[in-house]
């Protein structure tokens, strides 16, 4: 099977700087134009029945890609299996809901608070548990996700089962209104955040933290022997991932206006993790691609309401069996690089 990821990378490496800039700008322009694609007859196949296409672009698609990128720092880059990522999403969402309804802070002011709280909980969870390895970490994070959901169900400040309603929308920025009538603006906002995260990951990957994560993922003992403070870098990875999840939560709560505990179940963690594995672990473009497909597919096939999840499950099994490294794997590319390096020596 052709490896699109490698073909793309080859093409990209063959280009000079202006060519790359033009391509990136064209890509950004295309994505910004995406909300209007549902309007044309020749693209009407994209349209999602029942849910509005523009809303679907924000949630689940945009949110999944954003959270997928955040979780990818934890799972894909540093190899820590986190099955409770939804907890950070929930913390961000509830921060926005509680502070938005009880104080005069607006969503933009709450955003850093929500990210900070998510990061803090990431550190608090990480300090005791990141010493554990592999599947033990998986079960503890899974438990953390459940704890957050159970706590929101059972304490009064989060409104219990009913959740929190009448969450205020964010105030307008530069004439862009953020309310139910303007899902496009939310999409651009999420897209901007995705770009920011992609930029951050690209920068981190080539610097010390990125190299440390890569070393930890490949062999933690060796990494430790090489003098990498593994626990510290693991906590960094965990809390940066958490911050992205928290940011997604704040925006999500501001967009949907009503949140309740049943939105933050284990299924969300599984879906986000699936995006990563589905698209190609550790590879950013794979995650973006996986997020788009796994978020879009269930919405597109909503007309078979009853069997929707069933088809989703079958797809997961089938794709994993056909392409275990995901749709855009990184493996071959790394092998190719190694080969080239060996050839040059």
């Amino acid at each position: 099977m052709i490896n699109l990821r490698d073909k793309g990378a080859e093409l990209w490496e063959g280009w000079n700087r202006p060519k790359r800039t033009v391509f990136v700008l064209a890509l950004i322009g295309f994505v910004m134009f995406m909300p209007f694609l549902g309007n044309f007859s020749f693209t009407s196949i994209l349209d999602t029945p029942i849910a509005s296409y523009q809303d679907v672009l924000v949630y689940p698609i945009g949110m999944f890609v954003l959270m997928g990128l955040g979780l990818n720092i934890v799972v894909g880059k540093s190899g820590l299996l986190d099955l409770g990522y939804v907890a950070f999403f929930a913390i961000g969402a509830y921060t926005q809901a509680i502070l938005g309804t009880r104080t005069h802070l607006n969503a933009w002011e709450i955003l850093p608070i929500g990210m900070g709280l998510a990061m803090l909980s990431g550190v608090l969870l990480g300090l005791p548990t990141l010493r554990l390895r592999g599947d033990y970490l998986a079960i503890v994070t899974l438990g953390f996700g459940e704890i957050v959901r159970i706590v929101t169900l059972n304490i009064s400040i989060t409104g219990g089962t009913n959740g929190i309603a009448r969450i205020p929308s964010p105030p307008a920025i530069a004439g862009l209104k953020f309310d139910i009538m303007h899902p496009v603006n939310y999409f651009w906002l999420v897209f901007a955040m995705i770009l920011l995260v992609i930029w951050m990951i690209r920068r981190l990957s080539v610097r010390r933290p990125g190299r440390a994560w890569e070393a930890i993922r490949q062999d933690e003992d060796v990494a430790m022997l090489m003098g990498i403070p593994t626990l510290r870098y693991k906590i960094w990875s965990f809390s940066i991932g958490a911050a992205v999840g928290g940011a997604a939560g704040v925006i999500y709560a501001a967009k949907v206006l009503v949140i309740a505990p049943q939105m933050f179940t284990f299924n969300v963690s599984v879906l986000i993790l699936s995006c990563i594995v589905f698209g190609g672990m550790g590879n950013m473009w794979g995650v973006v691609f996986g997020g788009i497909i796994l978020a879009y597919l269930p919405e597109r096939i909503r007309f078979i309401t009853n069997a929707r999840q069933l088809v989703f499950g079958i797809t997961l099994v089938a794709i994993m069996n056909i392409r275990p490294d995901g749709l855009l794997p990184r493996k071959k590319r790394e092998k190719l690089k190694a080969k080239k390096a060996a050839h040059n020596v």
């Binding site: 799972v75 299996l81 599984v270 993790l273 699936s274 594995v277 589905f278 672990m281 009853n306 069997a307 999840q309 069933l310 989703f312 499950g313 079958i314 797809t315 997961l316 099994v317 994993m320 069996n321 275990p324 490294d325 995901g326």
Partner: peptide, 23 residues
């Protein structure tokens, strides 16, 4: 292959089973 692929594949099977039972 990597362990995560098996994990996701098992999660997929678990979705298939519980959804079949639901339907």
């Amino acid at each position: 292959t990597n362990r995560l692929a098996s994990l996701i594949s098992a999660i997929g099977m678990s979705i298939v089973l519980s959804e079949s039972a639901r339907i």
